[in-house]
Design a protein around this nucleic acid. Structure first.
Lengths: 351, 351
DNA sequence: CTGTTAGCGCCTTCAG
DNA sequence: CTGAAGGCGCTAACAG
């Protein structure tokens, strides 16, 4: 219908007032009741929608915040996003989510364009932290909070978790429950989580004094997805098949829950049982972990808590840009379910 | 560093040229090599980032498109989003995702603010279609494509699926495999998918001439989540317990995969087997369906295809606003896995 | 090739 | 309480 979108000028002229009065009437500033009525009527009949671009150019802010993530397909980011949304919406901000897909150039690109005008602030959780990305984040025209690790010298608000320690919790749990031949399916090593978890695994492996060559029991998946987890697990298990010289694994730790689901699938495909033949531990403790069959033992990295902290940090900096950069660390926590403990199947509710 | 963000005027004056030249140099328009060099250097030393707001106010477009969903937590929307992203990024657009369900942000509200300035176009997949939303969509200042059903008289580009027929496929499959006491766990009936699937279920139920009262075998979950599916299934199965007068169910159809995962969880909790005691069918055929244990038989509603079509429709309308409104229908397709067919467990059914 | 000028649509002093 | 005018930062005509 509206062949040409109506502007405030049109509304004002149709209402027979000046644009200033129209603006005031629409925004609830001082104006006589009859002016308000006329302007409202004119706006309605024209289907007037204020131009957000012009508005924020004038006002200097957009009341929008952005959350940039490499893979929205990962439930962990959904949980984080929900937490962020909850916090920022309380302060009147709208949250925009932007998936940068893969590739560090995309993230840089995104930060550059998003960081001036479209959003008043940014929470970013990058899989890969390149020096280019870091310098882009530092020069961003709006406040940025990073969820994840950054080089120590970078002075930016960050929220992180100790995922290396998280892997340690998983190893300790498996050792306690009698496993000794523990494999590890990781995500790409050039990602921040991938490298941290590798450090954690190798550290824990050495600490408990396991026999096998630590490199023999690791397998790197091509990304952090279910399909990649399945493929990696099949390769890893194949290397450890009876008769291949290496010992069969009795447990596998996956770098996140999606990989773990793929791992379980692979184990079952091979006709092995979980947890009796191979125990499996995931990381992130996403919602599906408790519903999967068997329930997935997982290391919670507090994704909701990290999201909440990140949002609060961003809001704080928005109100006071002079604040010193802060770093919040959320500690991991192990949640035991059926994939490592047969008695825990179905949360013990089986009768 | 940049206490006060640099603007083009600053860059120009530092480079000793006019703002026009600075703009041209930065945007790759005609300019002498030395001007380009001076401007580039000035911009770099000032950490200049162009203001996207001003830019799009001037240009009249933002090169951004938006995708609005009620629940990003649902994997079906993630698949849709990926498909949309793939298409629009090829045309140089960036995709912004906005979740309207998580917070108090209303879909109407979102459309209003997003539809003018922040994005050049919008793909929306609303769970509930109110008349207010429809009129808002019609008056939106930018092209809108709706994924889902709309009142017939509304002239808007839409992409939909025949989910009622999809439920029919599920019922037919269960009948074929010998089930006769089929239950249905639906989502809220005031949602578009909920009402369509209910129609589909009742129609199919009548068509195959099942005995029981169709209302007796239905249960409405409070939303489309795993937890709600579990709760609803427990209630439904409780009503059909041996000795309660009603017959025990031998199959349950869930209105989407998340509900189905909850249903399976509930069935197993009760000590029943899937599919031997109770077969379960989901809808959407999300990625996790093939990995779940047992594999989830699911009705594919072509979410990726719908996303792709929606994006293409939007791009087409962007280049030619005069196009007549089109309606694309994607047909459902049944994918059989272990949750209804014991022989299909862990076979090659994963794509 | 470069500088000057005129807005994009809106909000907000500043007079009346 | 209202109208006129200036300008947010940028780009696209126009002259030079």
């Amino acid at each position: 219908m509206a062949a040409t979108r109506a502007t405030l000028v049109h509304v004002a002229s149709l209402a027979g007032v000046s644009v200033a009065s129209a603006s005031r009437a629409l925004n609830g500033m001082v104006a006589s009741p009859e002016t308000v009525a006329k302007v409202r009527a004119a706006a309605a009949s024209l289907g007037y929608v204020p131009d957000a671009t012009a508005r924020s150019l004038k006002l200097g802010h957009s009341l929008q915040l952005a959350f940039a993530v490499d893979d929205v397909g990962n439930p962990v980011y959904v949980e984080m996003m929900r937490a962020i949304e909850t916090v920022v919406s309380r302060s009147g901000y709208r949250l925009l989510v932007s998936s940068t897909g893969a590739g560090p150039t995309d993230a840089v690109d995104l930060v550059r364009s998003l960081s001036r005008g479209y959003a008043d602030g940014l929470v970013i959780s990058p899989l890969r932290v390149t020096s280019e990305l870091v310098s882009e984040l530092q020069r961003a025209a709006v406040p940025v909070v990073v969820v994840g690790s950054l080089p120590a010298e970078v002075r930016l608000d960050t929220v992180q978790t100790n995922s290396a320690h998280g892997v340690g919790l998983a190893v300790a749990h498996l050792i306690e429950t009698g496993r000794r031949r523990i494999g590890f399916v990781n995500g790409p090593l050039d990602t921040t989580p991938g490298s941290a978890r590798q450090r954690g695994f190798e550290g824990a492996y050495a600490a408990v004094g396991l026999q096998a060559d630590v490199h023999e029991v690791q397998q790197v998946a091509k990304d952090f997805t279910v399909a990649a987890g399945r493929t990696a697990a099949l390769e890893l298990l194949d290397r450890h098949r009876a008769g291949s010289g290496a010992v069969m694994l009795d447990a596998i730790i996956a770098a996140n829950d999606l990989l773990a689901f793929g791992v379980i699938h692979a184990v079952l495909e091979l006709g092995l049982r979980v947890p009796q033949d191979v125990a499996v531990v995931g990381m992130d403790d996403t919602e599906l972990a408790s519903v999967f069959n068997p329930g997935l033992t997982s290391v919670s990295l507090g994704s909701a808590a990290r999201g909440r902290h990140a949002a609060e940090l961003l809001l704080a900096r928005l109100t006071d840009p002079q604040l010193p950069a802060s770093r919040i660390v959320v500690q991991p926590r192990l949640v035991v379910r059926g994939s490592t403990d047969i008695a825990a199947t179905h949360d013990g509710s089986r009768r």
